[in-house]
Design a protein around this nucleic acid. Structure first.
Length: 578
DNA sequence: TTCGCACGCGCC
DNA sequence: AAAGGGCGCGTGCGAA
């Protein structure tokens, strides 16, 4: 019986894509290949390749298979520089294993190839190694074998067995629609592994001289002696001490700052900027300015540039599935937290452009599609969702519509948001009922899942003890129960938005590969992508983005009146995109 | 000296 | 006036 939803497939020939397992040699450039059926049965013999990249490139061109490997870090990254074209599809065992474990309620079980192999064979299951950054792996001549296989185990044998087992578990979903969506999740997560490796290799174009000029303007010239404070910070530090009439103190120390203000009779509960803003004292403004500049210096200053943005590219490392909701995390350089002010340094190469695209109001649209609330879907049928919501329910007051909807998705209860939530509940009972049901499930210790089937973590033992002890007393249950309710309430939306974004990335990288001259993804941040492209292809890239968003919507949500518009900009500099 | 935590702020 | 989901990371600081 055909699945009700198609899987991601460039040639629209689902679902029988040829599969080839790929295992590189421990050293050298060779490796082994094994053709597989969909179920993971070997077909024919093992092919040994002296030049793995050449063999892979040839098979990719001829068959467009789905490559099966233990992990992209070990199987794809080393090949990347030698392949003439990107690979189209893969099944990444290391990423699929935790998706399956989570769905099976075996959250937290070790996820390496070796662990999956051990479970299959009834062997002692090795713990996962702590995550290692790329720099760490490169520095070590004897990088640990991250596959965690028992000594003497043939990696190809383990890859084949674990892959067959994963395919069996995927096929074991009883509900056909659920199975189909989870298969899509597996394909999309694996596509994420390809995209992440490619983006790390490409890097985000970064003009060090622009960055340097900005730092110099804000902070003063780069200190020649490492470890000394830039001039502006040192000046502010002195002026702070004068303003507070205090002995020298370290403005980076919360305790010392609190004490210095307290000596002036100003009692602060923290040194947060919003709290300082309410203080009528010259030192407060100086402190705020100091924190602004100090933050830029320590988080994205010259040291950061030396470490992460050399050779005209910022090269972070993306961690696919690094957040439980399915959002990506990053390791090194704070890739997902580039301050807006520094976007001036992100500049396309000469003759090239940046296509900056973000999904407008993604999360409320996801809520509309998930909950199938017809009234909310009408507001999400295009254009400005908050404005449409305001026109319908908030007398045109957009701010109130936005605040209310965000509050509903995050579980906010306090402040003057109550009346807004009441209006939303009355006008959009289906959508509000959806998030409230998710919250109740969480409060009761249950599990919720994203649209494609990514599971949230179960409550911890400590949480169970706490809520047990509280015995459901109190108006809304104990604090920890309500906190978990907020988490699961948000999880269904954030994780489903991540599902959609992964599908977008998968579709977009496929469409980009069809264009000449390799426009390529260089940045991905939750609901935003940047493509670096030859200028003459920019409009085609914009079309590819728009089409990919429509494809992602169709794949993840099926037929829905909800639109997921992308706002796109073709620019030379990232800072000009908004 | 090293490690882990709290804080605070950057991004979504 | 503060508030409410998810992260990474630099700094200070006390414990080990």
């Amino acid at each position: 019986m055909p699945d009700p939803l198609p899987s991601i497939d460039p040639n629209r020939r689902p679902p029988m894509t040829p599969r080839i397992a790929l295992v590189p040699d421990q050293q050298g450039r060779g490796g082994r290949l094994q053709r597989l059926t969909e179920q993971g049965e070997p077909v024919g013999g093992v092919l040994t390749a002296r030049d793995l990249a050449a063999a892979v490139a040839e098979l990719e061109a001829a068959e467009r298979p789905r490559w099966v490997w233990a992990a992209a870090e070990s199987a794809y990254v080393p090949l990347l520089a030698e392949l003439p074209d990107r690979l189209g599809r893969c099944h990444d065992l290391r990423l699929v294993e935790p998706l399956l474990l989570g769905h099976e309620g075996r959250w937290g079980a070790p996820r390496s190839l070796g662990a999956a192999w051990a479970r299959l064979r009834g062997l002692p299951v090795p713990d996962d190694l702590p995550e290692a950054g790329a720099a760490e792996a490169q520095d070590s001549l004897f990088a640990p074998d991250r596959l965690q296989l028992p000594p003497g185990t043939d990696p190809l044998t383990a890859v084949l067995a674990v892959h067959a087992e994963q395919q069996r578990r995927l096929g074991a979903f009883e509900d056909a629609a659920e199975r189909s969506r989870f298969r899509l999740l597996v394909a999309a997560e694996s596509a994420g592994a390809l995209a992440a490796a490619e983006m790390a290799a490409a890097g985000l174009p970064w003009r060090a001289e622009v960055h340097d000029a900005m730092l110099t303007e804000l902070l003063g010239p780069r200190p020649t002696v490492p470890g000394t404070q830039p001039a502006r910070l040192a000046e502010l530090s002195v002026r702070l001490q004068q303003a507070l009439g205090s002995k020298p103190f370290n403005p980076d120390s919360h305790t010392q700052v609190l004490k210095a203000f307290a000596d002036q009779g100003i009692r602060l509960s923290s040194t947060r900027v919003w709290e300082l803003r309410g203080i009528d004292h010259p030192a407060a403004e100086l402190m705020i300015r100091y924190k602004e500049l100090s933050r830029i210096h320590s988080a994205h200053g010259w040291a950061w540039q030396d470490a992460w943005a050399r050779g005209g590219r910022f090269r972070p490392e993306y961690v696919v599935g690094g957040v439980v909701s399915g959002r990506w995390a990053s390791r090194g350089g704070g890739a997902l937290q580039i301050p807006r002010v520094l976007r001036r340094a992100v500049v396309a190469d000469p003759g090239w452009r940046l296509v900056v695209a973000d999904a407008a109001q993604l999360e409320p649209r996801v809520l509309a599609a998930l909950s199938e609330d017809a009234a909310l879907a009408r507001s999400a049928a295009g254009g400005d969702l908050y404005q449409a919501l305001a026109a319908t329910a908030f007398h045109g007051e957009r701010d109130k519509a936005k605040l209310g909807l965000l509050g509903a998705m995050y579980g906010q209860t306090s402040g003057d948001i109550g009346p807004l939530l009441a209006i939303l509940r009355q006008r959009y009972p289906v959508a509000m009922g959806y998030v409230e049901a998710a919250a109740r499930t969480g409060e009761e210790g249950g599990i919720v899942r994203s649209r494609l089937g990514r599971s949230c973590p179960p409550p911890s033992d400590a949480w169970l003890d706490l809520t047990e002890a509280a015995g459901g007393e109190g108006e809304q249950g104990p604090r920890s129960a309500r906190a978990r309710g907020r988490f699961t309430r948000n999880f269904v939306i954030q994780a489903s938005a991540a599902d959609w974004a992964l599908a977008l990335i998968a579709a977009l990288r496929r469409r980009l590969a069809e264009l000449p001259d390799h426009p390529h993804l260089v940045f991905f941040q939750h609901d935003e992508v940047i493509v670096h492209t030859p200028a003459e292809l920019a409009e085609q890239v914009v079309s590819a983005v728009t089409e990919s968003a429509a494809e992602a919507s169709r794949l993840v949500f099926g037929p829905t009146p909800v639109q997921f518009p992308m706002s796109t900009a073709v620019v030379e500099c990232y800072a000009d995109a908004k």
